[in-house]
Each structure stands twice: as C-alpha cells, then as structure tokens.
Design a protein around this nucleic acid. Structure first.
Length: 527
RNA sequence: GGCUCCGUAGUUCAAUGGAUAGAACGGAAGUUUCCUAAACUUUAAAUGCAGGUUCGAUUCCUGCCGGGGCUACCA
C-alpha cells in the first residue's frame, strides 16, 4: 500500500527525493500521510502549501483512494478506498504464508552471515546471551523474508589461552594447584570438576586438553539450551581452532595485511593500522612476546567468512564489547567484507525480589538463559526480549516473568490467533459467492488496514534490524483483531456478510501467524 | 578523564525531524442470554534541566545533572 503511494508520488516529482509515506497514527489525518511537500517546498523555493495543492490535484485522479486531502501547512493525507483494501485482502488470502515475503532477483540477492551468541563454552549462557540470541535469530528470519541468503553462525572460541585458563581452573577446583585471580569461579566449574575427577587428575599436566574436553561438554549444554529449549537455530558452529587456526587463516590474514601495507612493526610488536578506519588507536596483532592476540584471530575469522563468499556480515555482541566495534569494523573493511554491521545489545539487568541480582559469568550465574526459558517458556522469553529495542538497557523482573507469565503480552497475541481459528472452525455458513465489498464498517476497514501494514513493517525491519517494531506491530494487530471481534460478528449475520467476514478472519490468522513466525514465536491452535 | 548507550505516565517500554507523544501492567469506573472474558469500553497520568539548528525537536547539535557499559602488547 505504502509502496503504491510512493510510486504515485514519484511520478509527480522531478527532484531526486524519496517521498516518505507513513501510516497516520491518528485516523483523523487519513490512513497514510506524507510530508513530501515540506521538502519539495524547500528545494523549489516555494510555499509547501502550493506544492501540495499541485500534487493533490494529480493524485486525486487515482482510483486507489477514497479521499485525498491537503492539511496543515502542507501534509497530504490519503484515505484508501474499500475496493483497494479488498484487493489487498485477496492478496493475503492467495499468498498465505508467503504474504509479506519478497523474492529478489539474482543481482540483488545477498549472501549474509549473521553471527550471534558465540559465548565461550566455559559455562552456561547468560541472559544477555539470550537477548542477542533471540535478536540474531529474528534478524536472520527477517533477512530471509526479504529474500536474502542467510547463514546463522555460532563462533566457538575453542583455541588459545582461554581454554588453558579454563583447564587450570578445573585443576584448581580439584585442589591440585592453588587458585589464581583470573580463574573461572562459577559453581558450574566446581560441579564439572567434581563430576569428572578422574579426567581432571588424568589431564592435570595438560590443562589445554582438559579445558577443551570440558568445553566440549559445555558446548553440548549450550546447544541444548539454545536449540532445544529456546528454539534458536544455527546453520554452522564455526570452530576457531578447526576453521580458523588449522586452516591457516592467521597466516593468510597476516600475509594479506602485509601485502596491503596496513600492518607495521613497532616496539617489537606487530600492529594493524585501524586508525585509518575510524578507530581511536592502532591495535596489536602480535605482541612483543610473539603471541598472537585475540583480535588477530577475529580478523582471521572475518577473512574466513569473506573467503566463503559472503557479501556481508552482521555481528551481534553484548555491551562488554563496545570498545571492540571500531577495530572489528576496520578489520572487516580491510579483508574486503563490504556490508559489515555490528549490533550491540545493551545490558539485561536482572531484578529479583525488587533487588538487582548481579550477573557475572566468571563469578557465577544466578539465573542462566536455559533456566529462564524453562521458567517462563521459550515463547514468552523470546517475545519479551524482542519487544524492546536492543539499544535500551532492559530490566528483566524475574519474579514477574515467572509468577505472572499469564500477563505476558505474548499470550495476548497468541490468543488472537487462537480466536481467529476458533471462529473459522465454528462457523456454519453456506457456500457461495464471496463479496469482499461488504466489509465496510469501521472495524472491518481498520483490521484490513492493519493487516496490510505487515509487508511494510517487515521491509523496514530488514533494513534497520529494528525487530521490536514487528513485536509491537503484532500487539497492535492483535488489539485491532480483538476489537473487531467484540464489535462485529461472523455468525448470526447474513450468509453473504458471514462469508466475507470469514475471509477477513482467515486473513487475520494468516498475518498473525506470519508475523509470529518471523519472531520465532509459536502460533498455537488452542489455548 | 576519554568513548558510548540511556533518561518519556506510579512501573516496564514505544514513537524513519511531523499534526493531538503511544501501549502494557498497576489505579478508577463499566461490559457476558451471542463465534474462547486469556477479551472489550471509558478514565486519570509523562518527554531530567538550559540553550541552539528548523516552517516543526522526544528525536539532530552544545553544555549541565543523573544512571549503565567500555577504556590492556587480556582472552
């Protein structure tokens, strides 16, 4: 709908400006509205009001609209005609689960990797990991809906010092060596060491191997939490050791940097000139002790992604990685990964009993992601996280989520779906010709309008990754549907009207389900 | 100190520079002989402070106040 209005406007405009058309929040100002005249007025040195009058004259000839009005200082407001809406409704019914999805021509289709969670397998997942997990999964769905080819990647840091430290932590837990400050301290470390005393003793002289062994166990648990419990799917678990180190990507990366002249030696260390790409200081690739840094391995990982043919990559990180963004973006540019985005999710603050419960992976975790999902259900947890912009610090009141999960908005949305299906199931209507023009009450129109917004919402989300708009949209749509249900009836009206209403209810069920699918939230048939 | 995210109703969150700042929960008042009341309707309630840019600012810029995070030749 929006697209049609934009293309109509573009026909009237010679300047190179993209008209912005938005859904009018308040229906007094039409179904859709545009402020294009303000911008054109400036460009043409004319009064916006005059510009908009000219535009309106032409636009009014279009059959798409029931009414087109000039308002305020230069707004152009559109009321979509019932006929146009009925056509859109037919499209929903024809396309079904494909409604809202796009097919891209080969040239426009991109191969995009989205890396998320990627938590080190040295303990269970935190809530922040979960936030990024649901977000990544949903963004992947949205990009697929937009017609792109997407790989969901979990990057496993199973190499280097970290694994060794993890191994040493386990040995310390078994009391063989003294505990050191930088060791992992959580309950889970102790538990594993207790359960696997024999392994710890056997490998006490090879902490790296011990760490790797334990990490494998933890990765299994992570996979269960992520895939089984939370329903987050990954296409690939990329191993730092097997896919980056063993495939010589560290060497390849160093060679590339040297060839491009972006690395240099100073004070005995090897540096990457990331300042050329907006970083505030250059970064070390190899220390003066001749050990490669973690950053070098990450650059290698980016090169590996590039070599596997990706056009772009989206990396989702937790708030503790803020300082990392500019250097990783620099590396992405240098290895030639054109479309690189990094999304930082802000912290999840956990409230329990009205108090803040501190979370720390190293010191131990109060509530893990797996536990949360078990407590409040995967659907509720997912919906809750995806309702809020990742930029916002989020308070997750664990008590509320546990005890009062029935108040969770996800049920409101799912209930709308259930209701729609129930109406369809119970309806006893004689078959016959379907006349959608009968759907002309305020509630009918509002519902169709809301349904037809879905492709627009999806399109917006695929360009700015603002998944929470989809979640908000689902709530709005559910509300519109519940409201329709209260006011208008399907049974108990004439067969002709009932047939048309049934179509509208079917379309509602389709769109609610499609929208929930994109988030990865289930659409139950019964509640 | 530097960088960054945030500050909106009692609370948790919305609002590509647009018109009368939206929801939900909580508060107040109502709605079921009828397709699921897990619903609906009505109602009270908010942009931290001070400037600037603009026809127009919750949004952009500057300063201040308040809260989180980052700030290693660590991983």
């Amino acid at each position: 709908m929006r697209e049609k209005i934009i293309s109509l406007l573009k026909k009237q405009i010679s300047e190179d400006v993209m008209p912005v058309v938005s859904v009018a929040e308040n229906k007094v100002f039409g179904h859709y509205t545009t402020n294009i005249a303000f911008r054109l007025g400036k460009l043409r040195g004319k009064n916006p009001r005059d510009v908009v009058e000219d535009l309106a004259k032409e636009i009014k000839k279009e059959k798409l609209f029931e009414r087109v009005e000039v308002a305020g200082g230069g707004f152009l407001n559109f009321w979509i005609s019932q006929k146009t809406l009925a056509k859109e409704l037919t499209e929903i019914l024809n396309k079904k689960d494909l409604y809202g999805k796009k097919k891209l021509p080969k040239g426009k289709k991109k191969k995009i990797q989205i890396e998320f969670i990627s938590a080190n397998p040295t303990g269970p997942l935190t809530l922040a990991n979960g936030r990024g997990g649901f977000l990544g999964d949903a963004i992947a769905n949205v990009l697929e809906s937009a017609g792109h080819n997407v790989e969901r990647e979990y990057y496993v840091n199973d190499a280097g010092n970290q694994v060794r430290t993890f191994g040493l932590s386990l040995i310390a837990c078994a009391g063989i060596i003294p505990f050191e400050e930088n060791f992992y301290k959580g309950e889970y470390v102790k538990e594993w060491a207790e359960k696997n005393v024999k392994t710890v003793k056997k490998l006490k002289d090879d902490p790296e191997k011990l760490g790797a062994t334990a990490a494998k166990d933890f990765l299994k648990l992570i996979k269960i939490a992520v895939e089984k419990k939370a329903g987050i799917k990954f296409d690939r678990y990329t191993s730092e050791k097997l896919d980056v180190h063993d495939k010589k990507y560290i060497e390849k990366t160093l060679k590339l940097f040297s060839e491009l002249g972006v690395s240099y030696e100073q004070d005995g260390a090897l540096w990457l000139r990331t300042t050329d790409y907006g970083d505030d200081k250059d970064r070390v690739l190899i220390t003066s002790e001749k050990t490669p840094t973690y950053f070098l391995a990450d650059a290698g990982h980016y090169l590996e992604t590039k070599k596997r043919g990706f056009d772009g990559k989206i990396l989702i990180l937790g708030p503790d990685h803020y300082g990392y963004v500019s250097r990783i973006q620099a590396a992405a540019k240098i290895v030639g990964l054109e479309n690189s985005d990094v999304i930082i999710t802000q912290a999840v603050r956990l409230l329990s009993g009205g108090k803040e419960a501190k979370m720390s992976k190293r010191k131990g975790v109060f509530v893990t992601f797996g536990e949360l999902v078990e407590d409040v259900s995967a659907d509720a947890a997912r919906f809750f996280f995806l309702m809020i912009s990742p930029d916002t610090h989020m308070d997750f009141d664990i008590d509320l989520a546990k005890e009062r999960s029935l108040k969770n908005p996800v049920f409101y949305a799912q209930y709308a779906h259930v209701r729609a299906l129930s109406i369809i199931k119970k309806a006893r209507v004689k078959k016959g010709k379907i006349d959608l023009s009968l759907l002309d009450t305020k509630e009918d129109i509002n519902l169709i309008l809301k349904l037809s917004e879905f492709p627009e919402i999806l399109e917006d989300s695929s360009s700015d990754y603002a998944i929470h708009r989809i979640t908000r949209y689902i709530l709005e749509l559910s509300k519109t549907f519940h409201n329709f249900y209260e006011v208008e009836r399907v049974s108990g009206v004439s067969d002709e009207l009932a047939r048309a209403r049934l179509e509208l209810v079917s379309a509602s069920a389709i769109v609610i389900k499609n929208a929930l699918d994109v988030l990865g939230v289930g659409s139950p048939k019964k509640m």
